[in-house]
């Protein structure tokens, strides 16, 4: 397995905050979105290097939010 490098971007994922606001667990989100818990954990913990539009679409559908609610750019 390749060593995971430190993020080289300034994007922060607010999945944990939105999950808490929706009172939803990661397991439930995983089942509803069809993305493994492992991948959602990578996303939640800020270790993801990229996110597919398809994944983002599903997340926005299930969490009833906009991409801008999930992702922010920190200067």
């Amino acid at each position: 397995m390749a060593r995971r490098a430190e993020p080289s971007h300034g994007i922060t994922v607010h999945l944990d905050r939105i999950l808490a606001a929706r009172n939803m667990t990661l397991t439930e989100l995983s089942e509803r979105v069809g993305v493994t818990q492992a991948n959602l954990s990578i996303l939640k913990n800020g270790h993801a290097r990229a996110i597919r539009f398809a994944t983002l679409t599903k997340l926005c559908q299930v969490l009833r939010c906009q991409p801008g609610d999930l992702l922010t750019y920190d200067r």
Partner: peptide
């Protein structure tokens, strides 16, 4: 290639 693989591994 290793960099590309790391990107793929980190793509959700």
């Amino acid at each position: 290639g290793a960099e590309m693989r790391a990107d793929l591994d980190g793509t959700v």
